[in-house]
Design a protein around this nucleic acid. Structure first.
Lengths: 188, 188
DNA sequence: ATCGAATGATAGATAAAACTATCAAAAACA
DNA sequence: TGTTTTTGATAGTTTTATCTATCATTCGAT
C-alpha cells in the first residue's frame, strides 16, 4: 500500500515534510497533531501520507542526507585547484543547515542503521578530499581526517545557527567558516 | 516536602543522577524504569527522589552547568599571561563532556528559562576573556566574541566525543582543540 | 453539473510511559 | 533486640501521544 501515487500527492508530501522540518526546528518535541496543524491539514490526512512518526523522522533524515549529498556532488574535486574544494563545499553547505539539523539533534535517528550508513557514505568523498589535502601539504597531517571532517561539519552548523538567529549575516558566513577552519581564531 | 534530607540521601541522589547521566548518554530515550534499573533501585524509590522526568532533566542540566562553572572558576584570568587562559580552560573542560552532553542534545531543556539563564551566566566570563584577547591582538577582531565562544565550545564537545568513542587519545585532546581553535587545520 | 477521490472533523482505540498506592521485607539506628 | 525508616516489588491509575475508523463535505477532473 503505497501512500503517494500521483505527482500532486508527491508535491503535497514534500510540502508536509517541509512544514514538519520548519516546525521541528522551532520545537523539536512537536507532536504529530501540532505538525498537522502547522502544515494546515487534518491529522487524519497527515496519517494518510506518513506511516508513523518514526517513518516521518527517518524520511526527514534521509531527505536531508540526499539534499546534502546532491549539493556536495556539485562541487568538483579538481586536482589542480584542490585547495578550493573545501571552501566551495562550505559555501554550498551553509544554506542547508536546516536540513542537517535533525541529524544532530534527534535522538531517535541515532539508532537507524539506514541513516548511519547514508551518513557514512556522505562523508566519504569529503574525507577522501581531506586526505588528498593532507598529502599535498595543505592540511595538517597530525590531525585525523575524522577530526577535520567533524570540525568542518560543526563550524558549518553553528554558522547556520547564527545566521538563523540573526547574529551573523548570510553573506560572510561561508568565509568565516573557511577562515576559522583553516586558520583558527588567532590574530595575524 | 523536600525529598532529600540527610547526608546519606543526598549521596544517594547524587548516585542516581550519575547513573541517569551515564545511561542517558548511551541511550537518550531511556525511560524512568530503565534508569531505575540501571541505577540498581526500584522505580518507586526513584520517584521518591525525583519529582518527575522533567525535574530530573532540569537537575541534570543545572548540575552540569554548576560543575562546568566550578571548573571554569578555577582558571585564573591573569592579565600577564592572558594567552594561557583559553588553553587552560580547554584542558579543564575536556573531561566534562559527559556533563554538558544534555545541554546540547536534550530537546526538553531548550525551553527552560532557568537553564538558558545559567548557560548565559556561564559563558559571560569566557566572553569577557575573549574580548580582552581581542584587544590585546591575540584573537582576531573581525570575528564576534560569540563566534569564538561557539567554536571553542563545539571543538571541546567533539573532542570529548572522539575520546569517548576511542577515536582520540585522552592526553593530546586538549592540545588538539587548542591548536585547531587558534590555528585551524591548515598546514605550516 | 456530476462523479469519484481526497479531505477534515470527530470520536475513539491502542500503546507506552509517567506516576501513585500499598505492603511486606530489609536496613539503619539506638 | 526492638523501633523507625527506607526500600523494592507489584498492581493499578493517569496521562499523553500515536494511530484508526467513520462520514459528511469539498475538490478536481471531465
Amino acid at each position: 500500500m503505497n501512500h503517494p501515487r500521483s505527482a500532486i500527492k508527491e508535491a503535497r508530501l514534500r510540502a508536509i515534510l517541509d512544514a514538519a522540518t520548519e516546525l521541528l526546528i522551532q520545537k523539536p518535541t512537536a507532536s504529530l497533531n501540532e505538525i498537522a496543524e502547522y502544515a494546515g491539514i487534518g491529522i487524519a490526512t497527515l496519517h494518510r501520507y506518513i506511516e508513523s512518526r518514526e517513518q516521518l523522522m527517518l524520511q526527514l533524515g534521509l531527505r536531508a542526507l540526499q539534499v546534502v549529498g546532491e549539493s556536495m556532488r556539485q562541487i568538483p574535486l579538481d586536482e589542480e585547484k584542490l585547495e578550493d574544494y573545501i571552501p566551495a563545499l562550505i559555501e554550498a553547505l551553509i544554506p542547508l543547515g536546516d536540513k542537517i539539523y535533525f541529524l544532530t539533534h534527534d535522538a531517535t535517528l541515532y539508532y537507524s542503521e539506514e541513516i548511519i550508513a547514508a551518513e557514512h557514505k556522505l562523508k566519504e568523498p569529503v574525507c577522501y578530499a581531506i586526505r588528498l589535502l593532507q598529502e599535498k601539504g595543505i592540511v595538517r597531517q597530525d590531525m585525523s581526517v575524522d577530526w577535520v571532517w567533524n570540525a568542518l561539519y560543526m563550524l558549518v552548523f553553528i554558522a547556520w545557527q547564527q545566521v538563523q538567529d540573526g547574529r551573523l549575516a548570510k553573506r560572510p558566513a561561508a568565509q568565516l567558516v573557511t577562515d576559522t577552519l583553516f586558520h583558527g581564531v588567532s590574530a595575524r
